[in-house]
């Protein structure tokens, strides 16, 4: 059946309007819910640096977050920035600025028994793996040296290889490692090449690597090191104050 040009144009126009309208309605209708999911996901990731979030429903995590996390934003010199909601700071956007100009959110995990005492400082991380961006949260204990816990996530690392940075077993390797050497300089913690390296427990600045994912490991290393250095000013400020201002700063 041969249709006239008018019919074809009319059909195309009608189809565009109907499909376009349908898509807009869906997008607008689901937008709030998607935003909510992203906020919940961020909270979950922050918490997963200090506790196991597996199997805990998201609304419950949101409650825990509200009870245990106090957050703030600091600049490169460790001074608090007023009027910025820490949860709204987009670490990926900040990453594109030079380190001196970024805003640095700090999420303080408060002690359960004493809500004024900080148990761990959770610092966001952002960097590049093998294929694409990687990010995470590193929790530093209140001694400002020991790693309390860590969580990583990624966009497109190879499943089964680099993507293993999201596995609990890999992240747990960081627990108890030290970020400073004896003189108090930040040396970070390096993931080394190969897997099953012996005596990892006796090496405070190294963790066992992931077999077949050396480049992702390197990305993790440089991400962790650069962000620990970026937060150095803030961490030393907290150390000087002896932790007394830490609850407020």
């Amino acid at each position: 059946m041969q249709q006239s040009n008018g019919y074809i144009i009319g059909f195309a126009a009608a189809m565009t309007i109907i499909l376009g309208g349908l898509l807009s309605v869906t997008a607008v209708g689901l937008k709030e819910r998607q935003k909510e999911q992203i906020v919940l996901e961020t909270k979950k990731q922050i918490l997963s640096a200090v506790m196991s979030t597996e199997g805990i429903p998201k609304p419950k995590l949101s409650d825990i977050y509200g009870e245990r996390i106090k957050s703030t934003v600091v600049d490169f010199d460790g001074n608090e920035i007023e009027g910025v909601v820490p949860e709204n700071v987009k670490v990926d956007k900040e990453y594109k600025k030079s380190p001196e100009n970024r805003q640095y959110p700090v999420f303080k995990y408060m002690s359960e028994s004493n809500p004024d005492q900080v148990e761990a400082y959770i610092l966001p991380l952002y960097g590049f793996g093998l294929w694409n961006y990687i990010w995470g949260y590193a929790a530093i204990s209140s001694d400002l040296n020991t790693i309390y816990g860590i969580s990583f996530d990624h966009v497109g690392e190879t499943p089964g290889l680099g993507a293993r940075i999201t596995e609990k077993g890999v992240q747990d390797r960081y627990k108890g490692k030290k970020i400073k050497d004896e003189s108090g300089e930040i040396v970070s913690v390096d993931m080394i090449k190969g897997e099953g390296n012996p005596n990892m427990d006796s090496k405070p600045h190294q963790v066992d690597g992931m077999s077949g994912a050396t480049i992702t490991g390197k990305g993790v290393n440089s991400m962790l090191k650069s962000y620990l250095e970026n937060y150095e000013a803030y961490l030393s400020k907290v150390a000087k104050s002896g932790g007394t201002i830490s609850a407020s700063l």
């Binding site: 074809i8 059909f11 195309a12 869906t26």
Partner: peptide, 25 residues
């Protein structure tokens, strides 16, 4: 219209896929 049937099919498929993506998210 048979002359634009491929683009019509593609439009329908693309719209459904975007809806799936939005719902999943």
């Amino acid at each position: 219209p048979s002359r634009i049937r491929i683009i019509v099919q593609l439009g329908i498929v693309a719209s459904l896929v975007v809806i799936v993506d939005l719902v999943l998210r």
